Simulated assay, not measured.
Amino acid sequence: MSKILVTGGTGYIGSHTVVELQNAGYEVVIVDNLDNSSIEILDQITKITGKKPQFYNLDLCDEAKVVELIENNPDITGVIHFAAHKAVGESVAKPLKYYRNNFFSLINLLTAYTGKDVNFVFSSSCTVYGQPDKLPVTEEAPVKKAESPYGNTKQIAEEILAEAASVNPNYHIISLRYFNPVGAHDSALIGELPIGVPQNLVPFITQSAIGKRGPITVFGSDYNTPDGSCIRDYIHVVDLAKAHIAALKRQEENKMSGNFEIFNVGTGKGSSVLEVIKAFEESTGVKLDYKIGPRRPGDVEQVWGDVSKAETELNWKAELGLEDMMRSAWAWEQYIKDHPFS
């Protein structure tokens, strides 16, 4: 099988994708500077798959080291690019940090592959849509002005990729626009490891449930939704990881309609914050302490994706439901309570 480079491969989505790649028979090379992850995740991946991936502790913003890495691994046929800073709030406070890291790393990778044949899968985001005019949102929906420097990096990165692919026939690029990944591997050996106070709903729920945090605040109960709370399209991280395998196979089988394609990756169903809380309580039997607070600036009211293109052209479909997501996230939280990561 092919050798695949996974940047940010010890991170949350990256580690789950590495597991699915190895389970599918791929050889994996991970590059990560461990800025937002733990080296111990390598051992966790090995426990799940029985095979330890090759690992480079490397900053992709160092162009010379990226070139050296690619030259030393000429048999790499595909790249899955996760490595990026991703905290919306921090990006507002430190925009240059985000532009430098997220653009330099991408450009250095593309430059290293100039003139070389490569399948490239990019980790994008539904944040490019903002608050869509129509729901469910399709890939043809207009990209709106970003709400944060983080969101802007995803928009501009897609422009860079499209333009690079248009002049370089050796690039075969698929951008996956994720909705809201949650949950953990069913082994409970890998999952989301937020640094500091979680900015996302589900890790805050699990940390609150286990006693690390206080009550959960539901930001707003007066939105134009059935129960008044925000709606998002939550997808199990294992389903999301499998979408990357489907994208690689599409590239390997020469089924792309051009050099650059975009796919929504979600469940196609929206769930409100209050529905997520209820699903957690019902799937785990753990009662949550939550309160209603004011709306949070910058929050989109509701968004979920039309994923029919991915289902048809990638031959991929999300299989795990909201209760699976909550149950696995809770199992992971319990695991890391007894097995803390450095």
Rank of each mutant, 00 (worst) to 15 (best):
A162Q: 11
V303M: 15
Y171G: 07
Y290E: 09
I205Y: 03
P226T: 05
S166F: 01
T17W: 06
V300W: 12
V286Y: 10
V143R: 03
D289A: 12
H185T: 02
L322Q: 00
E253Q: 14
L110H: 07
S91Y: 06
E40S: 15
A279C: 06
T49G: 11
E71C: 01
Q131E: 13
L34H: 01
I262E: 07
F82I: 00
S308L: 10
A318W: 03
E313H: 15
H244W: 02
V303T: 12
S37G: 05
C61P: 00
T49I: 04
R177W: 15
D222I: 04
K144I: 10
N72R: 04
L274A: 06
V67C: 06
V197Y: 15
Q44A: 13
V66S: 00
N264P: 00
I174W: 03
I173Y: 07
G266V: 01
Q131Y: 09
D32H: 14
N102H: 06
K86G: 09
G270W: 06
Y335H: 14
L320Q: 14
R327N: 13
I190F: 08
P149N: 02
N73D: 09
S124D: 00
L106S: 01
D133P: 03
K116D: 04
W304G: 07
D222A: 09
I70Y: 06
Y113K: 02
P136L: 03
D117K: 11
Q334D: 05
A329N: 04
A83K: 04
P294M: 12
L322K: 10
A243M: 13
T138N: 06
L314N: 12
N315C: 01
E275C: 07
E253V: 01
T217P: 00
S221T: 14
L21C: 05
K278N: 09
F103H: 15
V202L: 02
E275Y: 05
K52N: 02
N36R: 11
I336W: 04
N108M: 02
E313I: 09
D239K: 12
